[in-house]
Design a protein around this nucleic acid. Structure first.
Length: 374
DNA sequence: AATACGGGGAA
DNA sequence: TTCCCAGTATT
């Protein structure tokens, strides 16, 4: 009996029917794109100059930071991390709290926890050298299919099929794939495989990403400037590709955040659980974040980390996470000098907040509370 | 296959 | 507002 077709084989079969425009062959794409890349490559802090050796640590660090994060946002964080921890060994011996503090504001904090765990693993189990194969890289925390392929190709010169949001879009347009995401992913992978060259696969991937970031952009693609316009089968329909499944609406959660102050000005700050939303980060204690429910301060007071009798509201902070909106009613609470800090809590003077691993939503809360007149 | 997981910039 | 970004881990 015949072996059942694998998902990859089905995708390759489906991709077989898709062709380029102008009689172009798959093999024509990489040379065109690499020629464009050699003339227009973006200069980025983590990108080696032509002929310059690539540092796997730098490639890895930048790739982790760039997951679902724009180049502009990453810039300063990358500079601070490399200045403070120039090698994977240095990062491996850093305190997790320091890593989280440097990461604060960048989002997706599991990345920072995995970054630290990965550095320790590379240091302890691989002698401080990153594995040079996709399979080896894939086994490290925080490194998935994309990052493993990207590091293997960019840092180690291996041929790897790199798939990210930009490349999905470029490939979908290039071959006019109208199947919506995420169903189209296997086909897009098969098509990208077909145009990935044996040599310079790292440059090819970066060229595809540069193209997606500067020319083959999501809304108004600049096809007139595109080096692949001749072979592109998506001419005219590019702007609506790739098609995507509709997104779900975000619910709103509400709660009361307690700005608990001692007479000397110290504020009560709490560390969040290691996993889950904002895992391991610091927070201004609050009542439970409940869906579709208005915050009643009197009721919420019973959920304060220490017994409090009254509070006065100083305003509302709104923040949007990946899958819900949050409205925090900030309430100031005065407590005595001898008030003890409960489990996972500590007293922090306002000028010390900058040195904490405070995520953006909590910085907003602090700004609201400190801006309010006592 | 679906869902959880941040934050900011562009249109 | 909405979209989307050099995605990964978990269920």
């Amino acid at each position: 009996m015949a072996r059942p077709a694998t998902k990859a084989e089905i995708a390759a079969e489906a991709a077989h029917d898709l062709t380029l425009a102008g009689g172009a062959a798959a093999g024509d794409i990489a040379p065109r794109l690499l020629d464009w890349y050699d003339r227009h490559r973006r200069r980025l802090p983590w990108r080696a100059e032509p002929g310059e050796a690539t540092d796997p640590y730098i490639v890895w660090l930048s790739e982790i930071m760039l997951q679902q994060t724009t180049v502009a946002t990453v810039g300063d964080y990358f500079a601070r991390f490399t200045a403070r921890w120039p090698t994977v060994e240095a990062l491996a011996v850093a305190d997790l709290d320091d890593v989280l503090t440097e990461w604060a504001g960048l989002g997706y904090y599991a990345r920072a926890r995995n970054l630290h765990a990965c550095a320790r693993m590379v240091s302890a189990e691989h002698g401080g050298r990153f594995p040079d194969t996709e399979e080896g890289l894939r086994a490290l925390p925080g490194i998935g299919a994309y990052t493993a392929a990207a590091i293997a190709a960019i840092a180690f010169g291996r041929r790897a099929v790199v798939m990210d949001g930009n490349i999905e879009r470029v490939t979908a347009r290039l071959f006019a794939v109208e199947t919506p995401l995420p169903a189209a992913k296997p086909v897009l992978h098969a098509l990208t495989d077909r145009i990935t060259p044996a040599r310079r696969a790292g440059d090819f991937a970066q060229a595809m990403m540069d193209l997606g970031a500067t020319i083959c952009v999501p809304r108004s693609p600049r096809c007139m400037l595109c080096p692949l316009s001749a072979p592109c089968a998506g001419q005219g329909i590019a702007a609506r590709l790739p098609a995507k499944a509709p997104k779900k609406a975000k619910p709103t959660r509400r709660a009361v955040a307690f700005w608990i102050e001692r007479p000397d000005g110290a504020v009560l700050i709490r560390r969040r659980p290691e996993s889950g939303l904002l895992g391991g980060m610091m927070e201004v204690p609050s009542s439970e974040w409940r869906a579709d429910e208005s915050p009643a301060i009197a009721q919420a007071l019973t959920e304060a980390p220490i017994p409090v009798e009254s509070a006065h509201p100083v305003g509302t902070v709104r923040h949007t996470f990946t899958h819900f909106h949050l409205e925090l009613a900030v309430a100031r609470v005065a407590v005595p000098d001898d008030a003890a800090a409960p489990e996972a809590c500590r007293w922090v003077m306002p000028d010390g907040l900058g040195g904490l691993a405070l995520p953006t939503v909590m910085r907003k809360v602090a700004e609201r509370a400190l801006g309010a007149t006592p």
